[in-house]
Amino acid sequence: MQPHEVEQAAIRRGTMRRWLLSAPALVIIFLASFGPLFVMLAFSVLEKGDYGGVKPWTFSFDGWANVFFQHDIFTGELGFADAHLSIFWRSVRLSIITTALTLVLGFPTAYFIATRPRKTREIWVFLVTIPFWTNLLIRTFAMQEVIRNEGVINTVAMRLGMISEPIQIMYTDWAVLFGMTYVYLPLMVLPLYASMEKLDFRLVEAAYDLYANRFKVLRRIILPLTKPGIIAGSILVFIPSLGAYVTPRVLGGGKNMMLGNLIGLQFGKGNNWPLGAAISITLMVVVMVALLVYVRATARAGGDDRGR
């Protein structure tokens, strides 16, 4: 054997051993991430069972077709699935507004934390994470106590004479927005803080020295440098908002559905599992597209840095 052959054999053995050692982890990752996905995919192309479930080995693309197109209930004409599309649009709209609200509230918060002395910063970050200790459902019910007609906001406003009748906030889109913004705010603050902590404040000082006003500093220095944090935070808020189930259910009063509730309905009382599976996968595709946009955007941001 030539020396380089011995070396190659050793490398091969090393590679082999690495694969074998990581095999258990790979199998678990594969089963856990693709197994459920595969089940959903299979269910989405089967015919629906009469009272829930699916008929095994009876293939049908009705589930997929019905996500966007449906025969009109009364005339039988094929048209856009109006109900699904408006629910879809409501979800996207509320998620975008939630993202914007968390950004508006989270940006100054993160800036505030990042500009504290190093020791106190940790305390502030710790405070931001405290709500995670409580279950989402409980936080949502607590929110209900704040905004209901006899709740904190209305009672205080009426005592102060600002309003004479309680404002109906519960069971409106406002309540859903309010709840989602509260619940997802930490997911915006933390990545924003992470990127602001890295921000070199000497650049800010330099900008002031060059007669930039506050707004210009924000627009030309802070925003571009914290862009990765803004994008990461926005994605982290947008994705769970899109699939939110508990908040619209509890605060929205179940009157107007979001995508999560529509999927829940199909697997429950709607008895249409293939449609539910197809909508779930559609939701996942939307999330994946959002993630791709994110990756592209951050890659471009990185490229800009190198170009400069």
């Binding site: 209930i73 699904h84 559905m257 309905l265 709607g270 249409n272």
Partner: peptide, 14 residues
């Protein structure tokens, strides 16, 4: 018929 009713139900809860 149940499917018809579910469709109407989904449609009004949109």
């Amino acid at each position: 018929v149940m499917e018809l009713y579910t469709r109407i139900w989904t449609d009004i809860s949109k």
